[in-house]
């Protein structure tokens, strides 16, 4: 074999490996989704949405878990999104170039990848121990701590995409800075910021680990923020690890619902609110 042929062969082999690894990566996505569809879709009926979780052997649905998940996610978003957006605003506007902003940005990125179970532990110690019991509020706070770094990151990036000429033009008209930011920059970066919030919701809706020690679970219908609340992820965790066949079915239904809701949010964000680069 000549050197030329050898180089070509190595190239072909490695490029084939690239194609194979891509197929390998996509293969898992297909397998996971197929598992969810084949295990989950057969057991979906109205009962799932109208009745609370049953005792083993009884009929029931997931209404309490679905409502609970929506509540906990909403609390997390309502606390997390404003803080995240404001902090991102600070990094992109007032704090731009300052040392403190660099430090905040750095630790925000660390927080972004910090293990979510640690966040659960933290909120347990701060909120649950102080209140003396598990609660939906504690769960929401735990989720908000996962939401914040995500929103900080995306808000800052999106506000930085707005050209400085716009800021300067507004400043030249004598508009105070906070009005420049809230009326002009926010408007220009709106689709990006909303993308961040929706991606954040998609992320926290499926989080399980931070809820384990905070929201706990509740087999009954509850909308009380100060009491433990049912939620889909923990319900899936408990039902999947139980020995009961009908609980397994409900766990698969829950898994199917939550995954496709999250994937739908992700796809919507990517195709509808695609930020212009």
């Amino acid at each position: 074999m000549t050197l030329y042929q050898k180089r070509k062969a190595i190239n072909h082999f490695n490029m084939a490996m690239c194609v194979l690894t891509t197929i390998f990566g996509l293969f898992w996505l297909v397998w996971l989704l197929w598992t969810l569809v084949s295990h989950g879709i057969g057991y979906i009926d109205w009962q799932v949405f109208t009745e609370p979780t049953p005792a083993p052997g009884n009929d029931g649905g997931l209404s309490n878990a679905i409502v609970g998940s929506v509540i906990v996610t909403a609390v997390g978003t309502l606390i997390g999104a404003p803080i995240g957006i404001f902090a991102g605003t600070y990094l992109a506007e007032y704090g731009r170039g300052s040392r403190i902003a660099a430090v905040v940005r750095f630790f925000n990125d660390v927080l972004l990848s910090a293990p979510s179970i640690i966040i659960g532990l933290f909120v347990y110690e701060i909120v649950v121990v102080t209140m003396g019991h598990f609660s939906a509020l504690a769960g929401g706070i735990a989720l908000s701590l996962i939401m914040i770094p995500l929103n900080v990151r995306i808000t800052e990036n999106m506000m930085r995409l707005v050209s400085d000429q716009m800021r300067e033009a507004a400043a030249a008209l004598g508009i105070p800075r906070w009005k420049v930011i809230t009326r002009i920059i926010y408007r220009a970066a709106l689709s990006g910021i909303i993308t961040g919030v929706i991606l954040g919701i998609a992320r926290i809706a499926g989080e399980t680990a931070p809820l384990l020690f905070t929201a706990l679970n509740n087999n009954f219908f509850s909308t009380n923020l100060l009491a433990p609340i049912a939620n889909l992820p923990i319900m899936i965790f408990q039902f999947a690890l139980s020995p009961y066949e009908d609980w397994h079915h409900l766990a698969w239904v829950g898994a199917f619902l939550i995954t496709f809701a999250i994937l739908a949010l992700n796809v919507v964000v990517r195709f509808v609110l695609r930020p212009s680069k």
Partner: peptide, 28 residues
């Protein structure tokens, strides 16, 4: 005045991020 308030709110939010990571370490 509005600027001072808005600056303050955003700066406090940014500091919350720092406080969080320190709070996690300390509480653990």
């Amino acid at each position: 005045f509005g600027d001072r308030i808005f600056h303050g709110v955003t700066a406090v939010s940014a500091l919350i991020v720092l406080a969080l990571i320190m709070g996690i370490a300390v509480s653990l």
